[in-house]
Design a protein around this nucleic acid. Sequence first.
RNA 1: GCACGCGUAGCUCAGUGGAUAGAGUAUCUGGCUCCGAACCAGAGGGUCAUGGGUUCAACUCCCAUCGUGUGCACCA
Length: 583
Amino acid sequence: MLTTNLTELLQEAFTQAGYDKSYAVVVKSQRPELCQFQCNGCMSASKQYKKPPFVLAEEVVARLKGLEGADAILQSAEVAKPGFINLTLQDSFLASAMDHLRTDGRAGVGLAPSPYTIVLDYGGPNIAKPLHVGHLRTAIIGESIKRLSRFLGHEVIGDIHLGDWGLQMGMVISEIRRRQPDLPYFDENYSGAYPSEPPFTLEDLEEIYPMVSKLAKEDEAVNAAAKEATFDLQNGRRGYVALWKHIVDLSLGDIRKNYARLGVDFDLWYGESTSNAYVEDVIEILQEQNALYESQGAMVVDVGRPDDKKEIPPIIIYKSDGSILYGTTDLATLYQRAKDFDPDYVLYVVDSRQANHFLQVFRCATDHGIVAEHTKLEHIGFGTMNGKDGKPFKTREGGVLRLSDLIDMVENNAREKILDKEGLDVEEVTHKVGLATLKFADLSNYRMKDYIFDLDKFSSFEGKTGPYILYTNVRINNILSKLEGTVPGPILPAASEVERQIFLKVGELPHALETAFIERAPSVVCEYVYELSTLLNGFYHAHHILNEKDLERKQSWVSLLLLAKKVSGICLDILGLEVPERM
RNA sequence: GCACGCGUAGCUCAGUGGAUAGAGUAUCUGGCUCCGAACCAGAGGGUCAUGGGUUCAACUCCCAUCGUGUGCACCA
């Protein structure tokens, strides 16, 4: 916001001096002790105009100072060493800028002028398999990107995209058949209604999948039975579909519970199976263009390009046994999304290891018109979650850690720390603090990097953590509640350096959110809200608001706290963190 | 082997081509009669993997090398 104002001002000065205004970009200063903002354009402009950067900068600054109203905005505009233009704002201007934000519910963040329609694919849990730690990142990052995009004015449709149509379903079905062969689901001559209650429990399911999955790797007969069941299911075998429905219903209940606990929600609970109705349409499109051909027994489509640095294998549409894979369902899903929403973007928040798969799917979809030309497809990858040893995370017993167990651990840890406090809702605080710890620890890592899952870090409440952010906000609320009798007044020029820094930080919000959106990186928001929190902690350490004698100053500080609360609140909401009353 | 990530303080990580590379943690020091100490203030800690190149300017862009992770058609 502030940088935009200053850039406009400098553009005028550059133009008046006879230079291209594209050089007039103003950014936050990298040397806070020298100035608040800087413009580096003269160094790059030097070549074009064949003048030393220093001379250019002097000319621009001279014009700048002559501009109408510049005195009211700038306290100083100086040229430094090679050709930097260093700018510092008048405290009065800064204060009035803050005062304007007081009444702006969006704290100066504009809405996108031409909003995008975005389909966001995240979550991706598998039916019949418990959620594990690996599902944490996609859920949390995806949810955050969804909230961020919406705040900026875009229309976002979040789709969980359940893994409910692949081989794992065939595995579970074939195993149930092996255990209970007499069930009506397996009798091909059965034409009556199937039982409304499933012949197994959730616990059974959770035990069946890992067992049969292991078995299939060792025993070819088991594997073959699973494949056959998959094929039959995909081709609509009545009994299998009925059984499949039971599995989905049972499993989905548990999945919903887990996501609700994380505060993650989806607009669509579609799955691979949902797109099954569109597989035929996609096949037709591919056949019309003569793209589909037989290779090594499978039906495939080429997606390689002449200038590829390495050979990209064709995408498999039908396996040699006739069943479809996730590439096929992904294409059909894209076809459906194009029909339903005609999106500008389809974003996939999925583990980086899937990069090749998405490259194949995206190429196939764009090459053959399965999505419109204006639709951009993007894989938002993230690193794998490793243990302290740098290898994929396992529990002490060597197994996969369940997501629900992880949340339990973090919440139990939080519960221990708040036991000695009186008169607060322990369960509420436990939940909010625990989740904040987990989410902030995860989101603050840049998503592409591999992720060290460190329990100590997840249970730490000190320093750059979720609880620190919450603590800061709890204190703001606490102070505000004690100041209820004081009406907020106009924001006065900063009384100290910390207060000035808060003003400047508040002014950075639009830039921070914009960057986070462009980079698809919630970590930028984490960094921003942490820096703001640090300043706020410093602020109420340096100033005692309750005891302030000067009423106007006190009222100004109330306004500042309200503004800071608003800015913080925007960030917290984007990150999915909730502030408890006390903690 | 080929391709794509990643390599920054003891550890975990930030860092939009710009000036003296920053946080947290750990270590050391100081601060609660005072709106909440889950806090604040200070100290020490660096060959930005290595070597070239582009540029007025490189942690940032390009190339090579080393280390590390991941992926390379019928799982998702």
